[in-house]
Nucleic acid binder design. Structure first.
Length: 432
RNA sequence: UCCGGCGUAGCUCAAUCGGCAGAGCGGGUGGCUGUUAACCACUAGGUUGUAGGUUCGAGUCCUACCGCCGGAGCCA
């Protein structure tokens, strides 16, 4: 990768050696005839000690020339020292400046979110943001490993779609060679086709919602993983969902301890995320709301505060199944025991983080599905290919979608999903 | 789209009843041999979001607009 420079994360293998690190100046402190620099290289932070009697004059006076975020290469001997942040420090012999940074806008002080988001391209250099995005990466890796290790085939869904998927949410419209195209809000319908071809599949990509949502749980562009399994019923689907979420959480707990510490995440609640997860019906969830004196209209969908009240009854994610069919998408299969209910499931994360999974068993009967499309005032023409799946060897099948950003926010203990994605897109932000 | 809140130095915020626009950080200058968002001294830095209005006098009160934040709806 690069032979000349050692990464901070590898210093543990170089104690006593003279090495050269390449990075950026995070901070400096001086005390007359000795000064300290904090070097950041993306893999960690290390303190360099510059002593007047041990370096050349021009190296010692470097402190007056280098500014925050100046790019530089530092050569020195690696030592362990309890006084140094991180436990290691570098006895500096030489410093080579690559570029002296202009006055850096992000001080090592508190800033407002709007200011930081305007400087998101720089903000991601700071420890907390860095830790969050590293955890995001671990979550993405664990998702891929989970499905790849279980024989799922990755099938990418298109971003441009010819028409509405669900008919409920507002889509971003774009010009497509003289006709209209829409940015996808879900790859699910395509995964249903893929499941009939590959048995068990998943897609993982960005999705887009043009809803004018202004909450801590919404972005206009977000990432979703959507598995779909042929011959799987609702119970199979819930089994998969809980095994999946347990896997992600435990992977992050074991592999990203340092990052969770940087974020000061209390992990005791995450350690409890183990199978089995509680499963309650919509009707049972409504009963919980009523017992907690929540004013709730029967048959309605749950709002953010409703979800919080429900999830606070449990110490791990809770799966709520069999919502009223009327408030769910057309493709949800009717419960054969109660046609007013749908064989769907939402998973609510603990600590008020809300819905992270939505899915269920799909309607596999051609006649019922056509009726649903008509009832939802959707153009049957647009779903011709989708209906074909019910004509040529239709089978029961199920799947769900997990929102990456909400999952990252939950595991990191963040108040807002906007910090869980490198460059968030919200109703009011399309910069940088 | 609706409801609520906030816009003061590069950044984070103060400014009492409407009465001289201030501090910390960051910048600059100087000091300090173990600092941990170091510290100490000095210093520069302002169209108080925009446009009107009330008043002897507006950062402060009123109106409209703009921007952002939080919530609702909708959803992952």
């Amino acid at each position: 990768m690069r032979k000349e420079y050692v990464f901070v994360e590898d210093l543990i293998n170089h104690v006593g050696d003279e090495v050269t690190l390449a990075g950026w100046l995070y901070n400096k402190r001086s005390s007359g005839k000795i000064w300290f620099l904090l070097l950041r290289d993306g893999t960690g932070l290390v303190q360099g000690v510059v002593s007047k009697k041990e370096v050349a004059e021009d190296v010692f006076t470097m402190k007056d020339r280098i500014t925050q975020e100046t790019s530089l290469k530092v050569t020195g001997v690696v030592n362990t020292d309890d006084r140094a942040p991180g436990g290691f420090e570098l006895w500096v012999k030489d410093i080579q400046v690559v570029q002296v940074a202009e006055e850096y806008p992000i001080a090592l002080k508190e800033h407002g979110t709007d200011f930081l988001m305007d400087h998101r391209h720089l903000w991601i250099r700071t420890p907390r943001q860095n830790a969050t995005l590293r955890i995001r990466h671990e979550i993405v890796r664990s998702i891929r490993d989970f499905y790849d290790n279980r024989g799922f085939t990755l099938v990418d869904a298109p971003i441009f779609t010819p028409s509405v998927c669900e008919g409920t949410t507002t889509l971003f419209e774009t010009e497509y060679f003289g006709s209209k195209a829409y940015l996808t809000q879900s790859g699910q319908l395509y995964m249903e086709a893929a499941a009939m071809a590959f048995g068990k599949v998943y897609c993982f990509g960005p999705t887009f919602r043009a809803e004018k949502s202004k909450t801590r749980r919404h972005l206009t562009e977000f990432w979703m993983v959507e598995p779909e399994v042929a011959y799987a019923n609702l119970d199979d689907n819930m089994d998969l969902a809980e095994e999946f979420v347990e896997y992600i959480v435990q992977r992050v707990l074991t592999k990203k301890k340092e990052e969770l510490e940087i974020l000061e995440r209390d992990t005791s609640s995450l350690e409890k995320v183990q199978q089995p997860f509680p499963r309650i019906s919509y009707d049972e969830a409504v009963a919980i709301l009523k017992n907690n004196q929540v004013d709730f209209a029967d048959g309605a969908d749950f709002g953010g505060t409703d979800e919080t009240v429900i999830s606070k009854q449990f110490d791990r994610p809770v799966m709520v199944h069999r919502y009223p069919a009327a408030i769910k998408a057309f493709y949800m299969k009717e419960d054969p025991k109660d046609s007013t209910k749908a064989l769907c499931v939402d998973m609510l994360a603990p600590e008020g983080y809300g819905e992270i999974i939505g899915g269920g068993q799909r309607e596999d009967d051609l006649t019922v599905l056509r009726r649903k499309i008509e009832q939802h005032n959707l153009p049957e023409e647009a779903f011709k290919w989708y209906l074909d799946l019910r004509r040529y060897g239709s089978v029961p099948h199920s799947g769900f979608g997990l929102g990456i950003e909400r999952t990252v926010a939950w595991l990191c203990g963040l108040q807002h999903v906007r910090e869980t994605i490198p460059f968030p897109r919200t109703m009011y932000r399309n910069y940088p």
